[in-house]
Structures are given as C-alpha cells and as structure tokens.
Simulated scan of single mutants.
Amino acid sequence: MKADPTAQRRLLDLAGLDAELARAQHRRRTMPEQTAVEDAETTVRAHRDAVVTARTSVGDLGRDVAKLEQEVAQVAAREERDRGLVDSGSVSAKQVTDLSHELDTLARRRAVLEDAQLEVMERLDAAETDLAHEQAALDAAETALADAVERRDGVLGDIDVLEARRGAERAELATTLPEDLLALYDQLRARTGTGAGELVGARCGGCRIEMDRNEIRAVAAAAPDDVVRCEQCGTIVVRTEKSSGKASV
C-alpha cells in the first residue's frame, strides 16, 4: 500500500487521539470514584437493614408493652370491683372470704405483670436508643453516598466532555486520510490496540521493540510513500526525522 507521507504522519495524530480516548474509556471503567460509590451503597444498604431490624424490634416491644398495660388494667379493674364488693357489706361472710383470696391472687398477678411490663419497657427504651443510633448512622451513610455520587458524576462529566471533544477531533481528522489507509489503521488498532506508531531510532512505536538490521535496511530502502509495517506487531511504522538513517521521510 502507498500513501502520501504527510497522510502517514497524520496517523500519529490520529493514534494520539485514539490513545487519549482509550485512556478515557479505561478511566471510566476503573475510576476509583465509582468504587467509592459502590462501597457507599453497600454501607447504606447495611444501615437500612439495621434500621428496619431496629424499627421492627421497637414495634414488637411497643405492642408487648401495650398488651401488658391492658392486662394490668384488667387486673386492677377486677381488684377494684372485688374490693368494692367487700367494702359494700352486701355480700356474705363466705363471699368475703372468697373475694379476699381472689384479691390476694390478683395482687400477685398484677405484681408479676408490672414486673414484666417494667422489663419490657426497659428493653423498649434500649431498642429506641438503638433505632436512633442506627438512623443517625444511616443518615450519615446516605450523606456520604450523595457526596460520592457527586464526585463520581463530576469525573464522568469531565470524561464525557473530553470524549466528545476528542471524538469530534478524530472524526474531523479521519476525513483527511485516504480511505484505504484509514481502514488499515482501524483494522490494526482493533486487533492490537495500536494502529500506527512513530519509528524512533530503530524502535517501533507500536510494540516498542528494536528492529534488527535487516528490517531497518528494508525500511530505509522503502519509498517515502510506501506504507511500512512492523514485522513484530504489524503496526504501521510512520517514518519521521527521529527515525534511523535513510528510513526518515
């Protein structure tokens, strides 16, 4: 293949733009800001689960307290009724004795219920404290996530701008290149990641390997408009004033 030496030199500009675009794509795939967002999301999920667990515990204990309060109230109401009957003098001596026994039983039952109520209320207080702590931790984690997302989106915005700008420059530059030369360059770049490289001294700009003497002689003997390829990597070798001996064009 032949191509004007000036067009071949423009391949270096194209390769530079493609390298910058490749770095931007790599940056997008591996950006630590995205990792920070994912870590923050994991933390938020963990705290949300903890808040749900704590809220469930508070709800369960609250219902237990309410149930015990109702049972205590029922026993107290029964005590008040029995005591009223005893004090009224309207019941027989046997009934008074029975009511007195029942009052003793109710008093013991109320004491047990009140102890249980106090224990559950203490657990409820502790659960509410845990819930407040977990909610505060969740709020902090969500704030950290929002900050991480903002930083990531800022970096993504910069990458978007760079890719748009360099992409437009590449498209414009590509229109100045011969179609067959551009097609070969794109084919090589898709295969190896590098379509063209500058020959600096005897070193290929694609694979960074020094050419041997026979290859250098072949490059030097090539016409200025010959499209030369590296024997090692197949990359288009662009000859410049930095190239060895008569290989320069």
Rank of each mutant, 00 (worst) to 15 (best):
A93D: 12
L145F: 02
S57P: 00
D160E: 07
T105Y: 07
D160F: 07
Y185E: 08
L103N: 07
C204L: 05
V228T: 04
L173N: 01
E41P: 06
K242R: 15
L14N: 00
L11C: 01
A3I: 00
A46I: 02
R10F: 03
P5N: 11
E128M: 14
V120F: 01
V75L: 14
R55F: 09
V75S: 06
D158K: 15
A137E: 15
R81K: 11
L199D: 00
M211Q: 10
A40D: 09
D104Y: 03
Q232F: 12
D4M: 02
L184F: 13
L85D: 05
R152N: 05
Y185D: 14
L145E: 15
L173R: 00
L131S: 09
V249C: 11
V155M: 11
R27K: 13
A171I: 08
Q70F: 06
T143M: 09
G89W: 04
R217T: 08
T35I: 03
R27I: 00
G193S: 03
A76N: 12
E119H: 10
D82G: 08
D180L: 06
T143C: 08
K246G: 04
H26V: 15
V91K: 00
E198L: 01
G157S: 11
E114F: 04
V120L: 07
E20C: 03
D18Y: 13
L177Y: 10
D226Y: 02
V219R: 07
V52R: 05
G206N: 10
S57Q: 12
G167D: 02
E128L: 08
C204E: 07
L12Y: 01
V86W: 10
R109K: 11
A77C: 02
L182G: 11
T35L: 09
L113G: 06
E71G: 08
A223H: 13
T194R: 10
A46G: 06
S244M: 11
A116F: 04
A137Q: 06
G157W: 06
L184K: 14
E150R: 15
G157F: 06
A66H: 12
R55G: 09
G201W: 04
K246A: 02
Q232P: 09
R63L: 15
D13K: 10
E79F: 03
D18G: 07
A174G: 00
